[in-house]
Design a protein around this nucleic acid. Structure first.
Lengths: 142, 142
DNA sequence: ACTATATTGTACGCATTCGTACCAAATTTG
DNA sequence: CAAATTTGGTACGAATGCGTACAATATAGT
């Protein structure tokens, strides 16, 4: 019942993915977080910070800074949401849209060969096993 | 061949573990990285930064700062390695050793119930599948 | 021995990450 | 309807995390 090797492998695999992915994204002039936001906003009419946080798995405090830097790069805009004055509508600018169109397919094409080394069955099984572990962690008593 | 759900699950599971683990470690007055270093140094005669980095999966630049803060807390010492004057011998102080003795078993006991929700077979299978994905990522062409 | 190269760790800058506190707006309660 | 609570974002501080550059030492090739 030694789970430490599994833990180590979880971290190593996560880092291996992040490193492989980030290498490409950095060459495109973005950080991983910035890319995730751009990718999430693509083909949407605009999202709230809450929505973006849910999709990108970023907590709201982190998102504020990422959005600031994307705004400074003129890739997104933040405007008031008339439906709910607490929230903000984040949208891609035309430049952001062009970047999305150029960068998103390119990054999928970068990742695809790595994942093609595993069968769809393996990918599905891994996803299920990860979900089981995650639920165990989320439901574990304190 | 859509691997995005798997990616999302990988990140979510990693975060779920980190969150569950960090909650306990923070209550002990440490950060995750600091705990990892203390845990790695425990029951050793001292290690180089290189060794610690390999074990904790931290890059050396990150490690420098973590060691600084642990040194400030008087939990570790950095001394010259006579065998190789480039490297540094990092050791637990008596206080660091006492902290290790108190904190390391406690943290394993904190984690164990979560992992006990999965069978050893599941844990082993997950570890193998993660390793397969990691190798695919590491060997993928650029 | 001499030089080219590799290894070990630090310095530094930039961006992220998280927790906590806080404000304003919206929703729920009594 | 007024008070209490929840929700959406921001502000802020501390600590990673990573890439690049750099100094000191060690090793290899000649």
């Amino acid at each position: 019942m030694n789970f430490l090797p599994l833990l180590r492998e979880l971290v190593r695999t996560y880092q291996a993915f992040d490193s492989f992915s980030a290498r490409h994204i950095r060459a495109l002039g973005l950080t991983t977080s910035q890319f995730d936001v751009i990718a999430t906003l693509g083909n949407t009419p605009g999202l709230s910070c809450r929505d973006i946080g849910e999709k990108t798995l970023m907590v709201k405090g982190t998102l504020t800074g990422v959005l600031e830097r994307l705004e400074k790069k003129r890739l997104i805009t933040r405007r008031e949401n008339p439906e709910d004055k607490r929230s903000v509508l984040v949208q891609l600018t035309p430049a952001g849209q062009r970047l999305f169109d150029r960068v998103f397919p390119a990054h999928l094409a970068w990742l695809a060969p790595a994942f093609a080394r595993l069968t769809p069955e393996e990918l599905g099984a891994l996803q299920q096993q990860l979900a089981a572990l995650r639920q165990a962690l989320e439901q574990a008593p304190e």
